[in-house]
């Protein structure tokens, strides 16, 4: 992304004031910064959730600027997986239904129900919740919710995983487990990860740490792995 600027309507300050960032395929980049520094704003832009910005933003060779709704929806559907701080599960659905949500909007079509069900079991297994497919999301603990959210993000095998403070609402121990999970997934595949955090563990797991300060990104010194 080059020269990306973002100002929320009705607010005087510019949150992002010229972001230049290039993340290579397969990289694990962590974005750190104080609360309110604009991390969520940045990830929303990359994830195609927010379409009002200035500057140029390309993901996987395609520009996100001015994309029609259908194409942007397909991009969110197939190219990126999103994990939010507050998991954003649909509480009235089962874990399996939550995880398979993206498949409902996959116009490529990925096979029949049985196959979707198998894939749901597979990704739930991958996040260590093999037996939870039938449980309602409302009955899960915080750490389990975050892991289901991760499984949902991975369901259609995205190229890019965006995590916005995935451990922000978890205690240290549960958080560490989720971090390990993300690091493991990254190590296992060709997944590109961008994670916003002020959790040192995530920052440490990443191959690159960027600090967002005063609306500008600074490459932070690597602290080793």
């Amino acid at each position: 992304m080059t020269g990306v600027r973002k100002r929320y309507p009705g607010s005087g300050v510019e949150v992002l004031r010229g972001i230049d960032l290039e993340v290579a395929a397969g990289e694990f980049a962590s974005v750190v910064g104080r609360s309110g520094s604009g991390k969520t704003t940045l990830l929303n832009l990359i994830g195609g959730l927010d379409t009002s910005f200035e500057g140029e933003l390309e993901v996987g060779g395609g520009s996100l600027r001015g994309l029609p709704d259908a194409e942007l929806a397909a991009y969110r559907n197939r190219k990126v997986g999103l994990v939010f701080q507050d998991s954003q599960l649909l509480d009235h659905l089962s874990c399996a239904d939550n995880v398979a949500l993206a498949a409902h909007f996959d116009r490529g079509g990925r096979g029949d129900r049985a196959r979707l069900r198998r894939r749901a079991d597979e990704v739930l297994e991958a996040v260590g919740l093999g037996g939870a497919a039938g449980r309602r999301a409302s009955t899960l603990s915080g750490g389990e919710r975050q892991r289901v959210a991760l499984a949902r993000a991975l369901f259609l095998e995205p190229e890019l995983l965006l995590c916005d403070e995935p451990t922000g609402n978890l205690d240290a121990e549960t958080g560490a487990a989720v971090v390990d999970l993300i690091a493991g997934l990254h190590a296992a595949g060709r997944l590109t990860v961008v994670a916003a955090t002020h959790d040192d563990a995530i920052a440490a797991a990443g191959s690159r740490v960027l600090e967002l300060r005063d609306g500008v990104l600074h490459e932070a010194a690597r602290e080793g792995r």
């Binding site: 709704d69 259908a70 929806a73 397909a74 969110r76 599960l89 649909l90 949500l101 909007f105 949902r152």
Partner: peptide, 16 residues
């Protein structure tokens, strides 16, 4: 509102 936002985040179009 949130829930419909989630649907869009995982790929729902406006018309969906």
């Amino acid at each position: 509102r949130r829930e419909l936002g989630v649907l869009r985040a995982v790929g729902a179009r406006r018309r969906d």
